[in-house]
Write a protein that binds this DNA or RNA. Structure first.
Lengths: 225, 225
DNA sequence: GGGGTATTTTGTGTATACATTTGGGGAGTG
DNA sequence: CACTCCCCAAATGTATACACAAAATACCCC
């Protein structure tokens, strides 16, 4: 694999995981040395990260990891809502019903597994990812796909600021099952409505669960907290 | 200015203008020589172009200018419609009414100027750009902004494939005036409806005007046509 | 002792050199 | 004549070297 790809994936994962907290300055020489590569491929990686919005150029001195806070959640969902609704509506017209019927069933079983404490949060998010992928495949719209990919990256980052609880996972599984069901039934209205409900609840939960935790995590909090 | 910026802007402008038609292979050494810079900043420029979707990596051999055709217009508008509607709706809540009242009046005068044959197409698109900028400013949503910027780039490219006629400009000006008016009046429903109407007509016109021209322009058409 | 300026140092922007890979062309064979 | 395999050349990926700019530090002057 190319060195620039390695650097990109490594840095991206570290930023999303929070190992490189917001505000961290990524100096070229420093990071190149840390990753054991030269500055040239590292610069390409930093450039990609910046175009994704994970970092921003820092006044001629490297790049800094962009700040995240739950304040941005509403902005994020303000874009996510219309995009997801559009995606689901388009998917309804073009999707293979069988795939979504199966996904709906898997969400239902996931719901049972969560109830029994048998399914981890990680596995559940993987299933959500499968539904997203199935919708993306059905929609087959490169413009929509790119827009959503950007949003999903930021969503994953911000989501880390709040902690999930099993109750929400249970409800979320039911909502996803409903969405998949509506797509399988080729009912665009219902699919869009279910998506709106899901995103509304999702946002509400994220904001609510954050009130119990710290409102924002910055590098200073981590260093001096 | 940095050499990589010069290369980026130059290549971007040439691609959008059609001087570098779809299918053109941009080899690093060749383009670096043409622009009089080294390969290093040129690579950064190509990387940015690829992340914007104007070029795609070409099987380990440089990048090629991405193909455009009116077939993509429907995909583009399938994303543009929900995004513009969301933007207009959010702008309605936060906008300064005076700014949009003034814009509405300028669209009305533009309409009169077009009728008299006094306004050029270029000047009109500049005014449309001002309305977009005003909406962006009112919305103040970085996620929405980024998504729309991507779309606008592709839209400009595809729009070049079809030719405008004065009648459409006249109607379009009236539609824009209506949108600005609705925002100034703080009427989100009307603003969204007006946007839907405008985008619907815009797409219809673009598709219709294309039936009289060639359906797609590829590099082969230009080289061997 | 404080402030301003010069020097040093560090870091980025660019260019060039080297390594690796890929694609094409030519020769050979069925 | 077509197909295949191998070699070479050219282009990309990476590393390093150099130039310039900015920040930090130290020194000098007030």
């Amino acid at each position: 694999m190319r060195a620039s790809d390695i650097a990109y994936r490594s840095l991206r994962a570290d930023i999303i995981d929070g190992k490189l907290p917001p505000g961290t300055v990524l100096a070229e020489v420093e990071q190149a040395a840390r990753l054991g590569i030269s500055r040239t491929p590292l610069r390409e990686a930093l450039s990609r990260l910046s175009s994704e919005g994970l970092t921003t150029p820092h006044q001629g001195r490297g790049v800094v990891v962009t700040d995240i806070s739950l304040d941005q959640l509403e902005d994020l969902f303000a874009v996510r809502l219309p995009l997801e609704c559009a995606a689901v509506e388009l998917a309804t017209a073009r999707a293979d019903p069988e795939i979504f019927t199966e996904l709906a069933e898997r969400f239902a079983s996931a719901s049972r597994l969560i109830d029994a404490g048998g399914t981890t949060q990680h596995g559940y998010y993987a299933l959500v990812g499968e539904l997203d992928a199935a919708i993306d495949l059905a929609v087959a719209n490169p413009y929509l796909l790119q827009a959503q990919r950007q949003l999903r990256t930021h969503l994953v980052r911000i989501r880390r600021l709040s902690h999930d609880n099993p109750d929400r996972l249970l409800t979320s599984a039911a909502e996803h099952a409903q969405i998949a069901c509506a797509i399988a039934a080729r009912d665009p209205r219902l699919a869009v409505a279910a998506t709106q409900v899901h995103l509304h609840n999702s946002l509400r939960h994220l904001l609510a669960s954050a009130q119990h935790s710290r409102p924002s995590v910055s590098r200073e909090d981590i260093l001096h907290g």
